[in-house]
Simulated assay, not measured.
Amino acid sequence: MNPIERTAVELAIRYERLQGRKVTYVGDGWPPGLSGEVREWVHERHPGARSFTCDLVSREPDGGIARLIEVKGRRGHRTSVSILDRQRNAMLGLGSDWWLYVVLDCQTTPVLIAVREPGRLPWQLVAPARELPEGQYRAVGDEGVWHTMPADVFAMGEQVDAPL
């Protein structure tokens, strides 16, 4: 994880903990059992959802899953925010249970914006998915890339306080 991403994830985790929730980072892999638990939770709440990819699994104090969170960090405050096809699929399939946390100005004074239902943002396809032969596995570099602008994130999200 690069320093920008690390700052963003640390700030998102801090915010979740300040809200009384317990957080597990899954960006580098899922701990044993958690993937199955989240899959079951997703299928109960969103039977048609095909993906639940995220960076953080946040739980209420009673242990129940509160939200799945994708975290995006940016060096400044003008750079577009990008997601991949699999993240977009999770976003569209999970509605209000999938959150986008964008941390701007990670190198100076980080600002965390929490966006519930980020599917409402004006996403634009900037790089379509690469065509693959049938049956070939789609790697991250083969996925389509979508982006939105920080001004839209500010307009539809909520700036929250979680000092480092």
Rank of each mutant, 00 (worst) to 15 (best):
L68E: 02
V160E: 04
I113K: 02
E5I: 07
R17A: 12
G48N: 15
R120E: 09
I4L: 05
H46K: 08
A90W: 00
E40D: 12
A151N: 09
L18G: 10
E44N: 14
I13V: 15
L94M: 09
D62C: 01
R75G: 07
A129R: 14
N89Y: 11
Y25E: 13
R130P: 06
P150T: 01
A66N: 11
A127F: 09
R116H: 07
A127S: 15
G27C: 02
G33M: 02
C54P: 05
V81R: 00
E70D: 15
V57D: 02
E60R: 13
E44D: 14
E143Q: 15
E16L: 13
P122Q: 00
R45A: 05
V71Q: 00
Y15M: 04
L11G: 04
L84T: 10
D85F: 04
D97G: 13
D55P: 09
L112T: 09
R75M: 13
L164G: 14
A8H: 04
R86G: 01
E37W: 01
P133M: 10
V26G: 07
G73M: 00
I69C: 08
E40G: 04
R88W: 05
V42A: 00
V26Q: 02
R88F: 06
D62T: 08
Y15N: 03
Q107S: 14
W123D: 07
G33F: 03
V140C: 06
